Amino acid sequence: MKRKIICLGEALVDVYNNNGTLTEEIGGASFNVAASLGKLKNELLFLGAVGNDQQGKAIINKMNDYNIQTDYLQVDSQATTKALVTLDEFNERNFQFVRGADQNYSLNIEEIKKENIAAIHFGSATAFLGGSLQQAYNQLVEYAIANKIYFSFDPNFRDKLWNTPKKVAEFVVYCQPLLKNASLIKLSEEELEILSSGDSNIERLQNLEKINPEALICITQGSKGTLFAWKQQIDEVPVLKSNCVVDTTGAGDSFIAGLINEVLNRQITSESEMDEIFAAIYAANSFAKASVEHIGALTFLNFI
């Protein structure tokens, strides 16, 4: 029997402007993770909303391609959410969101209680921005904590969305319940600096570990590798550098998807040793490496 994993959040369209030519790629942090986990032969339940438009229909078709169940997908009268993506000279991406249907998702927790859930991933970039999606997010977090369901957290901070000190402070508050209770936490270096204190990544990681000493905490550092904390120990996992970086959109999503898959496959528990954690993270890094070698967050899945 396949294990069931929930991903809650946005499914959207990434719009790229390449010298005036617009192209669209399906994405969204939560959807990217769901697609990778579905491709890795897990049973995915995606909880989110898309518009009743061409983009929404394209997303639904992609869900079928990636073995994502659409039982909890909602089709809304508002347009499908878009992310306008620009790439810098190093092919690093920047986002500007045009919010639409994703914010209107509403959760019926009684339906979720009927499912035999192995894990939940909280990785939405837009779920803290209000609307019924934020209510659903909070409700599912409470359900996961109360029922001791394994869950992972990736805050997916976007400086274009949290663009004042006041908003950043709100973001930090919203993250606290997940940081304190998640079994697996994935942060970028920027997110680590926002969510923890200290003069270095290691010191910030140590301080974060004090908040949740049971969690596996990973800090992605791009080409510098992944710093992680486990059972009061800290180590670093290198990455295999790519000679063909095309687009880093979704690299973090593919990493956390690969790591969730490794953790479940290896049946990682509180008794697992550092070498097994190291191997799981190395495999996740390798999975993420493939994603940056193609335009769009999901194109690499066609070659797996």
Rank of each mutant, 00 (worst) to 15 (best):
I5Q: 03
G48H: 06
N116M: 04
D53F: 06
L84R: 02
E236W: 07
M1Q: 12
I145W: 05
S291E: 05
P155R: 08
D275P: 05
N17R: 00
S152V: 08
T81L: 09
G56V: 04
Q267C: 11
A290E: 15
K62E: 13
A49Y: 00
L227R: 03
I256K: 03
Q96A: 11
A284L: 06
L195M: 11
D275G: 02
K39F: 01
V85N: 03
N18D: 10
A29K: 08
N104I: 08
Q74G: 04
Q134M: 15
D154W: 03
K82D: 00
T70P: 00
F300T: 05
I26N: 08
N32W: 11
N212I: 01
V237K: 09
Q232V: 00
A297F: 02
T269C: 10
V246P: 11
V75F: 05
L161N: 07
L208T: 02
Q74R: 07
F128P: 01
A182V: 07
V50T: 07
E189C: 07
A35Y: 07
C7P: 10
K113G: 02
L22R: 12
K62T: 11
F31A: 04
I211R: 04
F157T: 09
I185V: 13
L8P: 04
I117L: 02
I256E: 06
K62I: 05
A279F: 08
N94A: 14
Q55Y: 15
E273Q: 14
E271T: 10
K166T: 14
L45W: 12
N18S: 09
N265A: 10
G9Y: 08
A288N: 02
S197Q: 14
L259W: 10
T126G: 05
N108D: 15
E203W: 01
F31L: 15
K231W: 00
L184C: 02
G296N: 00
L140K: 01
A35H: 04
A125Q: 05
I149F: 09
K289S: 08
K114V: 06
A279T: 12
S30H: 10
A79T: 03
T86K: 14
Y72N: 09
S36V: 13
I60M: 04
Q232R: 11
I120A: 09
S106K: 13
K289M: 13
P155D: 07
E89L: 06
E189K: 12
I112V: 14
F303C: 11
L195H: 11
N138H: 00
G27Y: 09
S223R: 15
F278Q: 08
E262Q: 15
N243L: 01
Q54V: 13
A279E: 14
Q221C: 11
G131S: 03
E115F: 03
A83V: 12
G296V: 01
C7N: 13
L107I: 12
K231I: 00
L179E: 04
F95W: 04
L37M: 08
N116R: 05
L22P: 06
E273Y: 06
N302Y: 06
V173N: 13
N116I: 03
Y16K: 01
N261D: 12
Q69S: 15
I149W: 10
I260L: 15
L264T: 05
I5L: 14
V33Q: 01
N42I: 02
F97C: 11
L205T: 11
A29Q: 08
V168R: 05
F228N: 04
